[in-house]
């Protein structure tokens, strides 16, 4: 074998080794991300269940529930940001991402329901936003809408925003969409039970909120996209 051919073969071996190492390292990093997301979701799942249990135990005086769903919302926001980033990195059709999104959506629905229950029992009026998006390439304004909601969430922490992938294949989510009567016209918002479709500007979106809703702030929210 000539020196040149030998060098070519060794170089190919080095290249494959290097690229294999890079691929493994990146895959390891992504696995670490998925593990962290799973850990956050597991923790959230326990906390949600704990809150629901407390609510059931104190049915006669639910407002005395020591835990607050506010803390949960804050964690949901953190999870949402990380999930969104991971989805960008691994792709929205990644099976692990899809699984995490489904779990996340369930957590959101449960948090939303318990927030409604607590509000009814304690006679409070939290401002909630249900935000439905699609990343199947059929919603050109969804990125901007999601970013605007992130801004509103950070600026007005009392907002409770729940974001959902409209096309996610999850029974509970489909039922939720049916119950809330949200049409397939994205981006879609349900702001304090009022429906609003499309996104033009931040100012236009702000106009959809009840008067004074964006001035009072104590809680946090979650936004996707």
């Amino acid at each position: 074998m000539s020196l040149f051919i030998r060098n070519i073969l060794i170089s190919l071996g080095i290249t494959v080794l290097l690229i294999g190492t890079v691929t493994y390292a990146i895959s390891y990093l992504n696995r670490a991300r998925i593990t962290e997301l799973t850990a956050i979701e597991d923790q959230l799942s326990i906390e949600t269940l704990s809150l629901e249990t407390q609510f059931s135990l104190l049915e006669t005086a639910p407002c005395e529930t020591s835990a607050s769903s506010t803390a949960l919302s804050s964690e949901l926001t953190n999870l949402d940001n990380r999930l969104s980033y991971t989805e960008n990195q691994l792709g929205s059709d990644n099976p692990q991402v899809l699984q995490l999104k489904k779990q996340y959506s369930l957590l959101e629905i449960r948090d939303y329901l318990i927030t409604k229950k607590l509000a009814a029992a304690c006679k409070t009026k939290p401002v909630t936003v249900l935000y439905f998006y699609s990343n199947a390439g059929d919603c050109s304004e969804c990125d901007k809408a999601g970013y605007a909601l992130s801004y509103l969430r950070d600026t007005y922490p009392s907002l409770r925003v729940y974001s959902f992938d409209y096309n996610l294949d999850l029974g509970a989510l489909k039922t939720f969409i049916a119950v809330t009567k949200v049409k397939d016209k994205l981006p879609a918002f349900v702001i304090s039970d009022q429906h609003y479709y499309g996104f033009t500007t931040l100012e236009e979106l702000e106009k959809q909120f009840p008067k004074g809703a964006l001035a009072t702030s104590t809680a946090t929210t979650t936004v996707r996209q």
């Binding site: 890079v22 390292a25 801004y151 600026t155």
Partner: peptide
């Protein structure tokens, strides 16, 4: 288009560092 959606100060605000968001991809490496 995203930056134009919200006030510029929000886009360029500093966020806490986390390894999770390191933009490391196979392409970059």
């Amino acid at each position: 288009s995203l930056i134009q959606t919200v006030p510029v100060s929000y886009t360029f605000a500093l966020h806490p560092f986390s390894w999770f968001y390191l933009p490391i991809t196979a392409l970059v490496v």
